[in-house]
Simulated assay, not measured.
Amino acid sequence: MTQNSAAEVLRYTAFSADPRGGNPAGVVLDASGLDGAAMLAVAAELGYSESAFLTGRYEPAGAGSRTGADSPDDAAPAPVRGYTIRYFSPKAEVPFCGHATVATALALAERDGPGELVFSTAAGPVPVTVAREGGELRATLTSVEPHVARIAPDDLAEALAALDWPAADLDPALPPRITYAGARHLVLAAATRERLADLSYDFARLETLMHRLDLTTIQLVWRAAPDVFHVRDPFPVGGVVEDPATGAAAAAFGAYLRAEGLAPDSAVLTLHQGEDMGRPGTLTVELRAGDPRVRVSGTGTRIDA
């Protein structure tokens, strides 16, 4: 496709400083010449769980300007940079993707320097701060306002059947919920690490249920400590069996923990994902008292083509 050949496609991994870890994403910093079909074709050719496309610049409403993350205190304020962004899995467009947001922010920081960004997504504006910490760039996104809902018993039974998880294998301390922070995810908590590690599911059956419930992933979790979790995210609606590190689901999970009283209003949580796939990554989730939004941060690095 002629349109595709004109777009420079970068490859980054998010939530790991090792290109062999974390979640890889395609990043197109200038997708102004691509339509939706062309973006989907790029994402399908890459085969990553999601790819991000910057379609233009804009002035964030009320953003003003702030001191750049790496600027001395007496430096001139750095403007907040605003971009419109779209996300595609190999099969469809999605409203929001955390790891591709982090990857894109890091790519922009390497090109233009660290600082404050705002991405205009289909789910709403998502601010991102990129700072240099100990020689590494680290991006922190702030989610749209989240919400949490119960799942109908019949839908829960169907999800467990598709996963081949007996209900007795669930952790009763972490109830199943549908949670949203830019995209919808079903949280299911495993009672043991062994249950989480044993993932073999009916792809078509789970995909059908997820389309009906408008779910982006199923977030499977195991609580290793009060503030440490191991997570996995089946993603059949995106055309891949499993997502290696899922920033959108991490934000939604933070909202879930707070809504269910399973984490304090102010907390820093660590999520380990990708270990069972051989692509380990670490996502840091921050809850702040008085702010319903959830912050998700991580490192990343460019992947050589």
Results as ranks from 00 to 15, higher is better:
residue 68 G to M: 01
residue 71 S to H: 04
residue 64 G to R: 00
residue 58 Y to N: 10
residue 73 D to V: 14
residue 101 T to A: 05
residue 71 S to C: 03
residue 70 D to W: 00
residue 66 R to L: 12
residue 91 K to V: 03
residue 104 T to R: 07
residue 62 G to T: 05
residue 65 S to Q: 14
residue 84 T to V: 12
residue 67 T to N: 07
residue 96 F to V: 06
residue 73 D to T: 07
residue 66 R to H: 02
residue 67 T to A: 06
residue 69 A to E: 10
residue 81 R to H: 13
residue 97 C to K: 04
residue 75 A to S: 13
residue 71 S to A: 15
residue 63 A to L: 11
residue 90 P to D: 11
residue 79 P to H: 12
residue 58 Y to K: 03
residue 83 Y to P: 08
residue 86 R to A: 15
residue 97 C to Q: 03
residue 62 G to A: 11
residue 95 P to C: 12
residue 87 Y to C: 04
residue 62 G to C: 09
residue 83 Y to F: 12
residue 91 K to Y: 03
residue 88 F to Q: 06
residue 65 S to N: 11
residue 91 K to C: 05
residue 84 T to C: 12
residue 64 G to T: 02
residue 98 G to N: 02
residue 63 A to D: 05
residue 82 G to H: 05
residue 87 Y to I: 05
residue 78 A to W: 00
residue 93 E to V: 02
residue 104 T to A: 08
residue 80 V to F: 07
residue 78 A to Y: 00
residue 86 R to Q: 14
residue 100 A to W: 01
residue 68 G to Y: 05
residue 77 P to N: 15
residue 104 T to S: 14
residue 96 F to H: 11
residue 92 A to Y: 07
residue 91 K to D: 08
residue 74 D to Y: 08
residue 103 A to Y: 06
residue 80 V to C: 09
residue 105 A to Y: 02
residue 92 A to V: 13
residue 59 E to R: 14
residue 59 E to K: 11
residue 70 D to R: 00
residue 66 R to K: 03
residue 81 R to F: 07
residue 102 V to I: 14
residue 77 P to R: 15
residue 83 Y to R: 10
residue 102 V to E: 04
residue 89 S to K: 00
residue 70 D to N: 02
residue 58 Y to Q: 09
residue 96 F to R: 06
residue 92 A to F: 05
residue 100 A to Q: 04
residue 87 Y to A: 04
residue 79 P to D: 12
residue 95 P to S: 13
residue 85 I to C: 02
residue 98 G to T: 04
residue 86 R to T: 13
residue 58 Y to S: 04
residue 60 P to V: 11
residue 80 V to M: 10
residue 78 A to L: 04
residue 76 A to H: 04
residue 72 P to R: 03
residue 95 P to K: 14
residue 83 Y to Q: 09
residue 78 A to K: 10
residue 95 P to A: 13
residue 81 R to T: 11
residue 88 F to N: 10
residue 97 C to W: 05
residue 79 P to F: 06
residue 83 Y to K: 11
residue 68 G to A: 13
residue 66 R to Y: 02
residue 105 A to K: 03
residue 70 D to G: 08
residue 101 T to M: 08
residue 94 V to G: 02
residue 78 A to Q: 14
residue 62 G to P: 09
residue 75 A to W: 11
residue 101 T to W: 05
residue 67 T to E: 00
